[in-house]
Design a protein around this nucleic acid. Structure first.
Lengths: 337, 337
DNA sequence: GTGAAAGCGCTAACAT
DNA sequence: ATGTTAGCGCTTTCAC
């Protein structure tokens, strides 16, 4: 990289003290216009770049945020990251990537490495699970600025940005009810996820409002994958061949379920209506195109990052919970003709 | 975050000099066993964490890598990142995320911010385009360790890890030829991408070997999206209704093309065989399941990161180009029954 | 308006 | 085996 130009090199070349150069690059007022001009010129000529490291050492700010994520195949969180990144950049922050994809057990160690690197705050862009989360609670207690997306920690007051999944589940189910369906199956995500519980609650609420009795034999569990949706639908068809509608808690499972329906010759939407959740790009191109619940994922990342930076600038700021709204996207798996 | 415990606090509490503490945390040999034990104990008690910032300032190494990416919706690069992350962590490195998703024009500025932060090296996980890349060439000239994935810069010697797309295009096309198809259409990605040129070359090579004359009217261009595949297929069907096979240069376009085929009532694979490229998760669940070319994406990220770290440790190391092999995944869009 | 001195938390070099 | 001294490149006092 060649020998680095330092602030003293600039000072010497410009015939001022290094302190004056510091004033110039930090846009401090107390510098003569002429001096300022000359210093900038020398900076250009020498190609001087202030060392962010040295600055951090004295300022105690790294302008770096930790980004904890679990799974890059998950459309939701990938989109959250996109939104987060844009917002971070806007404020002069960078994200340090920290994916626990392979094993969640490493997370405490990664968090240690992150704080060792003095990140100014940490954004959790991964789902809450039922695993041990004491290390997160202890981060909170240490006062590390922390914001989560879709991660809920019972008993802790923390800032979390999420989507209103109860309402999303409600919208999805109501759409099926409006079509006149009563035997409405559901394929849920895995146990222990808050989003699963919430979407399920929305489903029940919709049934209740419509006066349709809850039939738990119409509920099957998947693990978000295409394959699990396929298998869950198979089970559902065995137990309840009369099912006329399905709400799958994500699009991948919905598409898997559609495969199972095709296999047994049930026509979509004529015989069975289907609703998914997420609005992944593939949803618009499934056969037939999938009706689904769109979540403002990028906005989740954006808002979360903004709140995180607010928290960094004001550690005493109130912890708040933000819920963003979902939107029903009507496509052919729910058309009524 | 409370007042930070420093190396001197530990030294005082343990009754040694701060230098001895430094020796202990760096596992240097010249420390008495007894002293070492005592120091570690104090470190535990005080919850001391060495400041990575201060270390970087003196060592000139941040153990941080820049990660340039363009598009988180692109399955290929997302998977590259997953592989890269795992490998980086293995060597004690973190990635600083730098997505140019919104506008590529900001890239030079981001690179500046990255070098200002003293990243030890930079990984480009984005495709090469025909846009101006002088800023990258100048990085190389400055001697910044740099590795790219699927990014080729004519005239520069740089380390690049990629997939053998000529062979991939060949495999895809040969699979269609084996089925006895001769009117083999192709939907390419956008102009200016090396992967597009290479896959196209593989397609032509396969036709040539089979003695099938090249018919350029069977080639249509897309932009990687489902929609563009759909539209390209529509055009293809108009110009050449006799098309009996299609090679789409990615799975999204392949699935879009299948939609177009369904619409005009052409059966897959009975009337038309289809091959995609990427093996995205949705490929196995398209209707019918899509034959495609699988690329070792995570391995690309892994190898690229390993080479980058090698380059950091030995800046004089030779720049090399690594090509990884693709694999044909046979599914129903190409079955011959 | 500008400079000199001190120090952020650590490691490297040279004592002892 | 351990301590002392001197920086790394910058910002923050506090003089002038």
């Amino acid at each position: 990289m060649g020998k680095k130009v330092t602030i003293r090199d600039v000072a010497a070349a410009a015939g001022v003290s290094h302190q004056t150069v510091s004033r110039v690059i930090n846009n401090r007022p107390d510098v003569a216009e002429e001096t300022r001009r000359r210093v900038w010129q020398v900076i250009e000529e020498l190609g001087y770049q202030p060392s962010a490291i040295a600055r951090s050492l004295v300022s105690k700010r790294t302008h770096t945020l930790g980004l904890i994520t679990a799974d890059f195949s998950d459309y939701f969180f990938t989109q959250v990251i996109v939104g987060a990144e844009v917002e971070a950049r806007k404020h002069g922050y960078f994200f340090m990537l920290c994916s626990t994809e392979r094993n969640l057990a490493d997370e405490p160690e990664y968090l240690r490495l992150l704080t060792e690197r003095q990140v100014d705050g940490i954004l959790f862009a991964r789902p809450s699970t039922e695993e041990d989360s004491r290390h997160i609670a202890s981060l909170i207690r240490e006062g590390v600025p922390l914001v989560t997306t879709a991660y809920w920690l019972p008993g802790e007051k923390l800032t979390v940005v999420d989507v209103d999944n109860v309402d999303g589940g409600l919208q999805a189910t109501e759409c099926l009810i409006e079509l006149g369906r009563c035997k409405i199956g559901m394929i849920t995500g895995p146990a222990g996820w808050k989003s699963v519980n919430d979407r399920t609650e929305g489903y029940k609420l919709a049934l209740e409002r419509a006066g349709i009795p809850l039939d738990v034999s119409l509920i099957e569990r998947g693990d978000w994958s295409y394959q699990s949706g396929y298998e869950a639908m198979k089970r559902l068809l065995e137990k309840a061949a009369h099912t006329t509608a399905v709400f799958a808690q994500n699009d991948q499972m919905a598409i898997g379920a559609m495969r199972a329906l095709h296999e047994v010759g049930r026509r979509i939407p004529d015989d069975v209506s289907v609703v998914g959740y997420d609005d992944i790009p593939a949803a618009a191109y499934s056969q037939p195109p999938l009706t689904t619940i769109r979540q403002p994922m990028q906005q989740v990342g954006e808002v979360a990052t903004r709140l995180l930076i607010e928290l960094i600038n004001d550690p005493a700021a109130e912890r708040k919970e933000v819920l963003l709204k979902t939107e029903l996207i009507r496509r052919e798996t729910c058309s009524s003709n």
